[in-house]
Amino acid sequence: MEYNGAHNKVCANLLEDAKMNAKGFKKFKRYIPFYIMALPAIIYFFINNYIPMGGLILAFEHYTVSGGIWGSQKVGLSNFKFLFQSSDAFIMTRNTILYNLAFIVLGTCLAILVAYFLHELRRNMSRKIYQTIILFPSLLSIIIVSYLANSLLAGDTGFINTQILQPLGLESISFYSEKKWWPFILIFVHLWQMMGTSCILYLANMSAIDPGLYEAASLDGAGRWQCFFKITIPCLIPTIITLTILAVGKIFNSDFGLFYQVPMNSGAIMDVTQTIDTYVYRGLMNTANMGMSAAACFYQSIVGFCLVMLTNTLVRKISKENAMF
């Protein structure tokens, strides 16, 4: 927070400086090094991201090899129809949004808490060990994770049933056909896999907080948890906001592997595992229609785009410096 202030002060100085040199070009000239620094990334994004965006036009046409991306027959919005026609449209939209909200809220809380616990450990050795351990899952591909989940959940061979429930004399659970478990399983698997990487991000930001702030606070008699809520969290707010806005932009997307592979494509639980991505996959798996898949992608992007603009405007209203643009 303090730094923020300091930074703003420099901004002001710089600006004043700039004003003093008022002549247009000179003012611009001092920014040239910054533009040069940004240039590689600007060029790269232009090539890698902006040029292929022309491909979005696929969403509005019936792709044929002879026509290519530009010359294929235009079919208007008909490629989008299949997304809204279905009776599943409500279920899949609801699932996608609710799961994403749960991931954003729980994921952020958990990552911050774990990062805090790691940060506060006094012994370097144990910190290193814990930190390495919680990172393991992010090294696994989702296909492997789905087999792991299967090895725990399967009805006849799964660990939970054969090694825990049966020895205890409890009836085994057939997870893959009972809906009620899946919201928990999916959230758990997601958190299990993602915790490691999102936690190191907060850890990095925590380690940059000036210890002087804590010292001052504890001199004033603030307890550990008071320090956590009054100093640590506020210092992390900009990062939290950035991450949340970015996550909001992806709220209509879902991790296909998590929702398709982990439930093993089981039909009985589809009411709670169907998301927009799995619907599109199941619908287009056999026809591989490029126009329709591009349309689905376009739809998700547009919604994400609007939501990002909206959140950013809200953030800007509340605290201008934390807005992304």
Binding site: V10, L14, Y31, F34, A38, N49, M53, G249, A294, F325
Partner: peptide, 28 residues
């Protein structure tokens, strides 16, 4: 992060936009 950089907003947007829209595999 440079204060007062002309076109900073546009640049942020330029960067962020790449995250939201992608042309898909075939064009790339």
């Amino acid at each position: 992060t440079v204060p007062g950089l002309p076109g900073k907003k546009i640049l942020s947007f330029y960067v962020l936009f790449t995250m939201l829209f992608s042309g898909g595999l075939v064009p790339s």
